[in-house]
Nucleic acid binder design. Structure first.
Length: 113
DNA sequence: TCCGTGACACAAG
DNA sequence: CCTTGTGCCACGG
């Protein structure tokens, strides 16, 4: 099973009206530094994957190849009750608590000489 | 195999 | 707040 497939499986678990961040999905899959690969996985995902519930760490909708889907994402989110405040989603309120508080997980920084 | 790319995250300034 | 620099790692060519 590829990383992308596992990412899809995790994203399918996000309930309506909640969102998760790219980093959060990566962390839940045991790869907290692999947020970017989550974005790649969403590039061409199956239609039953609620891709619109994945946003960046600022609660914003990330830029992508086809800008039209950004508007689609916002419409779908507001359609299920996720409100944007000044262009961002208040994660305090709408973040999916998948796997409990996967937020602010300890991160390893570069080792110094 | 190696190398560049990217729908990201985060610490500093 | 916002901007910049750096770290990360799956994927494709």
């Amino acid at each position: 099973m590829t990383f992308a497939e596992r990412a899809w499986a995790m994203i399918r678990r996000i309930p309506r009206g909640r969102v998760a961040t790219y980093g959060q999905i990566g962390a839940l899959l045991g790869r907290p530094r692999n947020a970017r690969a989550v974005g790649q996985a969403l590039r061409n995902c199956p239609h039953d994957v609620p891709w619109h519930r994945v946003v960046n760490s600022a609660g914003g909708i990330s830029a992508r190849p086809r800008a039209s889907s950004m508007l689609t994402q916002e419409l779908r989110l507001t359609g299920e009750g996720v409100a944007l405040r000044r262009g961002r989603i208040p994660l305090r309120r709408f973040r999916w608590a998948g796997g409990a508080s996967a937020r602010t997980a300890p991160r390893r920084r570069a080792a110094s000489p």
